[in-house]
Amino acid sequence: MFNFIWGIFYVLVNFSLFVLCYRLFGKKGLYAWIGVATVIANIQVTKTIDMFGIVMTLGNAMYVSLYMTSDLLNEKYGREEARKAVWFGFFTLLMTTVIMQMALVFTPQEGDLAHTSLKQIFGLMPRLAIASLTAYFISQFLDVRLYSWIRKYYSTHGQFWIRNNLSTMISSFVDTLIFCTIAFMGEYEWNIWVEILITTYLIKFVLTAVGTPFLYVARSFKFDEDK
């Protein structure tokens, strides 16, 4: 029960900070969020938790916020800005992976406190990075394309929630399937793997709906750059 209650608070803080980042820094804030969220999500995913007897990974709230960011960019600034943000996130994750793998090669001094912990977290990153980069690349560009396609049929101001939810829910399923297959297949027993796959997608499904009101708030902001 604690994980569930803390999880609700955690999600609200994540999405509130996303809105605040945009409020304070405008379009640049969305690019900054993409860069930070891609790294944090891939660190958090190494931790599994139990909620109501179900095994799930962390990082879902941050990952859903990536879809929120690209959809908001698509909505307010156009498809090309959304595509550019996806490339930025891809580069950020790739850069982090390369730099941290090089950092782990250094021989730590006697009495060093950080190396073992860093190795436990970032030592998993090559496989996780391949999984994440592949899933991110395919699903995010799919989301941008789907959002633009859905917008042709649901283009009114009030149908924003349809565009956002449909594109994200489809893309996040593709993302979850690709990521779980590359990252966790063979690492966990089959039943645990299936459990992680299903719960991860269901959580993203719910989080997408929860994030919609935050997106409406963010869309209402006006900046000089919007003119």
Score class of each variant (00 low, 15 high):
2 F>V: 08
4 F>Y: 10
5 I>M: 09
10 Y>G: 01
11 V>D: 03
14 N>K: 10
15 F>D: 08
15 F>I: 06
16 S>L: 13
16 S>P: 01
17 L>A: 03
17 L>P: 08
19 V>Y: 04
19 V>W: 09
20 L>I: 14
23 R>A: 15
24 L>A: 10
25 F>R: 11
26 G>S: 07
28 K>C: 07
32 A>Y: 04
33 W>S: 09
35 G>N: 00
36 V>M: 13
37 A>I: 01
39 V>R: 13
40 I>W: 11
42 N>C: 07
49 I>F: 11
50 D>H: 13
51 M>L: 15
52 F>Y: 14
58 L>Y: 00
60 N>S: 12
65 S>R: 08
67 Y>S: 00
68 M>A: 15
72 L>S: 03
73 L>P: 01
86 V>M: 08
88 F>N: 02
92 T>I: 08
93 L>D: 07
95 M>V: 11
97 T>G: 11
97 T>F: 04
98 V>Q: 06
99 I>P: 05
101 Q>T: 05
106 F>W: 09
107 T>S: 13
110 E>W: 11
111 G>T: 03
111 G>S: 11
112 D>F: 07
114 A>E: 10
118 L>T: 02
122 F>C: 09
125 M>H: 12
128 L>V: 01
128 L>H: 02
130 I>R: 00
134 T>L: 08
134 T>H: 04
135 A>C: 04
135 A>P: 03
136 Y>V: 01
136 Y>N: 06
139 S>M: 12
142 L>T: 06
147 Y>S: 01
147 Y>T: 04
150 I>H: 07
150 I>E: 03
153 Y>K: 12
154 Y>T: 02
157 H>S: 11
158 G>M: 04
163 R>D: 05
167 S>W: 06
167 S>A: 14
170 I>S: 04
170 I>R: 03
172 S>R: 04
178 I>V: 10
179 F>Y: 15
185 M>G: 00
186 G>N: 07
187 E>R: 09
188 Y>R: 08
193 W>K: 03
197 L>N: 01
199 T>G: 01
201 Y>Q: 07
201 Y>M: 09
209 A>N: 05
211 G>D: 12
211 G>Q: 12
214 F>I: 00
216 Y>L: 14
220 S>P: 00
221 F>C: 09
222 K>R: 13
224 D>M: 06
